[in-house]
C-alpha cells in the first residue's frame, strides 16, 4: 500500500480547497445579506446591544476593504474561531462541539440502518424481480421516497409513543434518570430508535432502488453469462459474481449522500427534540442567530468531506481497478 499516504495527501489537499471555498461562501453570505454585516453577524437585527456590534466591527475589520475583511475572516476560521453567539453568550465553536456527539450518533446509526436494510431489500427485490415481494418492496421504497421525513417522525411518535407508549417521544436520554453504564446505553438506544429509523428511511428507499436497478443491470452482463456457462448454480452466480459488482456503485453514491443525512437531521432533531446540531440549527433559525447557522454549515461540510474520504478509501480497497497511487 505504498500509494495510501499519497492518496490521503491528495484527498486532504482537495478537502482543504473545498473547505476554503465554503469559508468564502460563508463570508459572501454575510456580506450579500440585506443589512449591515455587523448586524447580520450579531443576529436578529437590532436586538444585540451596540457595544457588541461595535466589538464585531473591530474584530472583523468591517470598515476595511472587502479583501482584507476576507483575509481576517479566513484567519479567524483557521484558528478555530467561528464567531460568538450573542444570543447564547457562548463561542460558536463551543456550542458546536457540545452538540456534535449527539448528531454523530444519530446520523451514523441512520446511515448504517439505511445502507444495510436498503441493500438487503434491494437485493431481495431484484432476485425475485416481478414477484409479489418485489412489488411490495418497490412500493415501500416509492412511499418512503415521497414522504416528508418530519411528518413520518410525527406520525411514528404519535403511534409508538403517544398511542402505544412503547418508546420515549423525545430527548436523548431520560432526564434525571440517574442511569449509568449499560442501563444508560439501553436508555439512549430507546430514545435513538425512532429518530434514527425516521432519518434513515428516505435513504433506505434510495439505496434499495439503486441496489435493485444495479443488480438487474449487472445480471445482464457478459461475465455473468460466463459464470453460468461454468455450470454454477443460480444462487452461486448471484452471490459470487453479481452482488459484489452491483453493490460497489451503491456504496459510492451512499458515501456521497451520507453527508446529506446531516441536512435531514435538522428536521428529525427538531421533531424529536434530539439535542444535536440540527436542533441547534432550528433554534438558531428561530432566533436569527446567523453566526451559529454559518458555523453549523461549516461543520456539516467538514463532516461530508470526512464521509467522502472514508468511502473513497473503502471503495479503493474493494475495487482492484482503483489504483490508490493513481
Amino acid at each position: 500500500m505504498a500509494g495510501l499516504p499519497r492518496f490521503l495527501a491528495g484527498r486532504l489537499i482537495k478537502a482543504i480547497v473545498i473547505l476554503f471555498a465554503i469559508v468564502v461562501i460563508n463570508f459572501l453570505l454575510v456580506h450579500a445579506a440585506p443589512g449591515d454585516p455587523a448586524m447580520v453577524m450579531a443576529g436578529e437585527a437590532g436586538a444585540a446591544d451596540p457595544k457588541f456590534v461595535e466589538q464585531l466591527r473591530q474584530q472583523f475589520g468591517l470598515d476595511r476593504p472587502l479583501l482584507e475583511q476576507l483575509a481576517t475572516y479566513v484567519s479567524h476560521v483557521a484558528t478555530g474561531d467561528l464567531g460568538f453567539s450573542y444570543r447564547q453568550q457562548q463561542s460558536v465553536w463551543d456550542l458546536l462541539l457540545a452538540r456534535l456527539p449527539a448528531t454523530l450518533v444519530l446520523t451514523l446509526t441512520a446511515f448504517v440502518f439505511a445502507l444495510v436494510v436498503g441493500i438487503v431489500l434491494g437485493t431481495l427485490a431484484a432476485v425475485r424481480a416481478g414477484s409479489v415481494s418485489d412489488s411490495a418492496i418497490t412500493v415501500l421504497a416509492l412511499l418512503a421516497y415521497a414522504t416528508p421525513i418530519y411528518w413520518v417522525g410525527l406520525m411514528l411518535m404519535l403511534l409508538f409513543s403517544v398511542q402505544l407508549g412503547w418508546l420515549p417521544a423525545f430527548g436523548y436520554e431520560t432526564v434525571g434518570g440517574g442511569l449509568s453504564g449499560f442501563a444508560r446505553m439501553i436508555d439512549i438506544g430507546e430514545h435513538l430508535l425512532l429518530p434514527a429509523l425516521t432519518l434513515g428511511m428516505f435513504y433506505m428507499a434510495v439505496y434499495a432502488r439503486m441496489t435493485r436497478a444495479s443488480i438487474l443491470e449487472v445480471r445482464d452482463m457478459d461475465f455473468v453469462k460466463t459464470a453460468r456457462a461454468k455450470g454454477l448454480s443460480h444462487g452461486a452466480v448471484v452471490v459470487r459474481h453479481v452482488l459484489r459488482n452491483a453493490i460497489l456503485p451503491v456504496i459510492t453514491v451512499a458515501g456521497v449522500q451520507a453527508g446529506h443525512l446531516i441536512g435531514g437531521s435538522i428536521l428529525i432533531e427538531t421533531v424529536f427534540a434530539w439535542p444535536g446540531l440540527g436542533r441547534l440549527a432550528f433554534e438558531a433559525v428561530l432566533q436569527r442567530d446567523y453566526q451559529v447557522l454559518l458555523g453549523i454549515f461549516f461543520i456539516s461540510s467538514v463532516m461530508v468531506i470526512v464521509f467522502n474520504i472514508l468511502t473513497d478509501l473503502i471503495y479503493s480497497l474493494v475495487d482492484p481497478r482503483i489504483d490508490l497511487a493513481r
Binding site: L29, A33, P34, G259, I305, N308
Partner: peptide, 19 residues
C-alpha cells in the same frame, strides 16, 4: 463543490439570511 455542500443545510442558511 456544490455537490459536497450538505444541500438542505445550505437552503436553510440561504433562506434564513435572505429572509
Amino acid at each position: 463543490l456544490f455537490q459536497t455542500i450538505p444541500n438542505f443545510v445550505l437552503t436553510v442558511v440561504l433562506v434564513a439570511i435572505f429572509t
